Simulated scan of single mutants.
Amino acid sequence: MPRLADLRFRAATTFQRRVGNPILRRLPLQTVLETTGRVSGLPRRTPLGGRRVGDSFWLVSEFGERSQYVRNIKVDPRVRVRIRGRWHTGTAQLLPDDDPVARLRGLPRFNSLGVRAFGTDLLTVRVELDG
Rank of each mutant, 00 (worst) to 15 (best):
L27M: 13
N111C: 00
T14V: 12
L4Y: 12
N111G: 03
R105L: 04
Q30N: 08
R116W: 00
Y69R: 01
T91R: 15
D6N: 09
N21L: 05
D130T: 05
T89H: 13
P108Q: 06
L4F: 14
T46C: 12
N21C: 07
G50K: 09
T46P: 05
D55A: 11
R126T: 04
P96V: 12
D6E: 15
L113D: 02
E65R: 11
V19R: 08
V60H: 02
L107V: 04
A5R: 12
L94T: 08
L107N: 06
G49E: 10
T14F: 14
R103E: 15
R10K: 14
T46R: 13
S61V: 09
R80Q: 10
L29K: 09
R82G: 11
A92R: 12
T35S: 06
P77G: 01
R8L: 09
E62H: 09
R71N: 06
S112T: 02
T13K: 10
L24C: 06
V127H: 04
G50V: 03
P100A: 04
A102F: 00
R78W: 08
N21R: 12
T31A: 14
W87I: 12
L104Q: 11
D99W: 01
D97G: 06
R109Y: 14
R17D: 15
T120P: 00
R80F: 09
P28L: 03
A11N: 03
Y69T: 13
T36E: 01
V53D: 04
R8Q: 08
R80V: 05
E128V: 15
P96E: 12
P28N: 07
G106P: 14
A12P: 08
P47L: 00
G41Y: 08
G90R: 02
R66V: 10
T31G: 09
V53H: 13
R51G: 03
R17I: 11
V75P: 04
G41A: 07
L122G: 00
D55I: 02
V75E: 13
V60F: 04
M1A: 15
F63V: 06
S67M: 02
P22A: 05
A11G: 15
N21F: 07
R10D: 10
T120H: 07
S112R: 04
A12S: 13
R86Y: 11
G106D: 11
K74E: 15
L107D: 01
V101I: 10
V39M: 02
N111V: 03
T13F: 08
P108W: 04
L48H: 05
L129R: 00
G106H: 14
G37F: 02
A102L: 15
S56M: 08
L4C: 02
V101A: 10
L122H: 01
V53G: 01
F9L: 14
R109M: 03
